[in-house]
């Protein structure tokens, strides 16, 4: 089980969270103007990165808030967590132990 550092509550066991998929995917402002291809990419295309992945988590059994994380999908190690609306840290620092 992962230990996840909620930016609001601190480190908690994975069981308190749900995974929210890839982060920073913006919903097209006006879906009616999207081509089928653009809409399909928004809905279905995912980077599925082997390496450092920006993803959403939600602390459902805690503060209830969404936040973002950088996690290395080759080790499952969290490099950083940050609040919604913030950009991913450029230099991922190691999560404090």
């Amino acid at each position: 089980m992962l230990l996840i550092n909620c930016p609001y509550c601190g480190e908690r066991p994975e069981l308190e969270f749900v995974h929210g998929g890839q982060a920073h995917i913006a919903r097209p402002g006006n879906p009616a103007e999207c081509s089928d291809q653009q809409w399909a990419e928004y809905l279905y295309r995912r980077d599925n990165i082997k390496g450092v992945h920006a993803e959403r988590w939600r602390h459902v059994h805690g503060c209830g808030r969404f936040f973002n994380a950088l996690r290395d999908t080759t080790s499952d190690q969290f490099l950083a967590t940050y609040k919604v609306g913030e950009q991913p840290p450029a230099q991922p620092r190691k999560a404090t132990a």
């Binding site: 089980m1 994975e14 749900v18 993803e55 996690r71 499952d76």
Partner: peptide
């Protein structure tokens, strides 16, 4: 598991 990964291992829970 709930999250994407390439580690070939999953959580004990």
């Amino acid at each position: 598991d709930a999250y994407t990964s390439y580690t070939q291992r999953g959580g004990l829970h």
